[in-house]
Simulated assay, not measured.
Amino acid sequence: MVEIERKFLVKSEDFKEQAFTQNKIAQGYLSSIPERTVRVRIKGTRGFLTIKGIGHQGGMSRFEWENEIPLEEAQELLKLCEKGKIEKTRFEIKSGNHIFEVDEFYGENEGLIMAEIELKSETETFERPEWLGEEVTNDERYYNAYLSKNPFKDWKNN
């Protein structure tokens, strides 16, 4: 139940032609405090409820629990969420033995494209696609819970 993940900015849209899936995602937060974020997500036609704990030192790993819930329940729970909905398209791209999830954001976070990779350990190596840019794993501004309250379009120095 521990998620080990690294986050990167994406420097070109070349990833799109390599994607084997893409899904629209809408999500909100019932709780966005770092010690326990509670997220409601609709991905395509499926609903999910996710609870995440605070990140370990370095921000690469943290507790994560996720369960699929009926779509109708997810739609109703989204209505109860804190202000600031995240809208994005997620593209999945195979790179070596790993899969990158690349999120292209819309709405208040238009212009932001980020890639995430889940690893089995914090020291695991992986192939870096050429479209992968600067690592932002340790930068809390790039957490979706932060983006829901402090949209990318409002950043002074992006």
Rank of each mutant, 00 (worst) to 15 (best):
M1H: 15
V2K: 14
E3F: 07
E3G: 08
I4A: 12
E5F: 05
E5V: 09
R6Y: 07
K7Q: 11
K11A: 10
K11G: 03
S12Q: 00
D14K: 15
E17K: 15
Q18F: 14
A19Q: 07
A19R: 10
F20A: 12
N23R: 14
K24D: 12
I25T: 01
Q27E: 06
G28D: 00
Y29P: 04
L30E: 02
S31D: 07
S32I: 01
S32H: 14
E35A: 15
R36G: 12
R36Y: 04
R41H: 01
I42N: 11
K43R: 05
K43Y: 01
G44M: 05
T45W: 06
T45M: 03
F48I: 03
F48G: 11
F48R: 06
F48S: 12
L49Q: 12
L49I: 15
T50I: 13
I51E: 15
I54A: 15
H56I: 03
H56F: 07
H56P: 00
M60L: 02
R62Y: 00
F63G: 04
F63W: 13
F63I: 09
W65H: 11
W65S: 11
E66R: 04
E66T: 08
E66W: 01
P70K: 11
L71A: 05
E72Q: 09
E73F: 12
E73K: 12
Q75R: 11
E76Y: 15
L77R: 06
L78H: 02
L78F: 02
C81Q: 05
C81Y: 00
I86G: 05
E87C: 01
K88T: 01
F91K: 02
F91P: 03
F91C: 07
I93Y: 10
I93H: 03
K94L: 13
S95Q: 13
N97H: 09
I99S: 11
F105Y: 14
Y106A: 10
G107S: 11
G107W: 00
G107V: 08
N109W: 05
E110N: 06
G111L: 00
L112N: 08
E116P: 07
I117K: 03
E118W: 10
L119Q: 12
K120Y: 11
K120N: 10
E124F: 08
T125D: 15
F126R: 08
F126P: 03
F126K: 01
E127T: 09
E130H: 14
E130K: 13
W131L: 14
W131P: 13
G133L: 01
G133T: 02
E134T: 14
T137F: 03
T137E: 13
T137N: 10
R141F: 00
A145V: 11
Y146N: 15
L147F: 01
S148G: 01
K149G: 08
N150A: 04
P151M: 05
K153W: 00
K153S: 12
D154N: 15
N157Q: 10
